[in-house]
Structures are given as C-alpha cells and as structure tokens.
Amino acid sequence: MDSPIKKLLIVDDSKVSRMLIRSHILARRPEWIISEAACGEEAIALIDNDLPDYCTMDINMPGISGTDAAERMLSKYPSIKIVIFSANIQETHQERARLLGTILVAKPVTEKSITLALNCFSDSK
C-alpha cells in the first residue's frame, strides 16, 4: 500500500515560480513534503541525500539545463517521476521531454497546469 505522503522536489531558478508551484500543490495535496532547488546542479546533489518521489523541473536555469539535469537524475534514480515545467514549449523541448519518458507542461503555473502535472505523477503508479 502506497503511502499518501509523497516527496516532491521543485527545481526552478525563480523563487516566485517555486512558491507558486508549492502553494498550488499544497492546496491539492496538503500532506506532501516539498523541497526546492534553484538549479539543476543543486537538484542533482540534493537527491543523493533525500530521494523524492516526484520532481517538477524548469528548463532555462543558470548552469545545466533542466532537461539535462532530469536526464542525469533519471539515469541514477529511474524511480523518480519528473514533469518538465517550462515557458519554452517549442517542438524540440516537447520531443526531449518525450524521450525522457515525461511530459512538458507549459507555464504559467496555474490550476490547470498543476492538474496536468499531478495526473502525470499519478499515472506512473
């Protein structure tokens, strides 16, 4: 039996964006435990100590791109379910997300886009 308490890691260089995702998620899943990283490198370092179940990943960040970070995280921990959250929704990024076995959700962060992400998380089980 899966515990309803899930761990979510939010990776985004914008604090406002992280706050938005956090508040939308907690409104729907108040029991979840949420951690944050401001760049891909930080996220990769973080998951070694505290492996999340889910992750939302921005693409354009200082340092490595979110898609590259996601790829590295998945190669080490294939169990993480990652959703790419980006303002850049051109075909190349959609394709990259597909190749990573995930989806790309268009920003802005709204109730609708959060629903898409949550559906993607629950599909994986």
Partner: peptide, 11 residues
C-alpha cells in the same frame, strides 16, 4: 518570471 513566460511564447 512573467517575462520569461512572455519570451517563451514569443519564441
């Protein structure tokens, strides 16, 4: 963040 979303749409 607002302008990065705008930039994404423009792109």
């Amino acid at each position: 963040e607002v302008f990065s979303i705008g930039a994404g749409r423009a792109a």
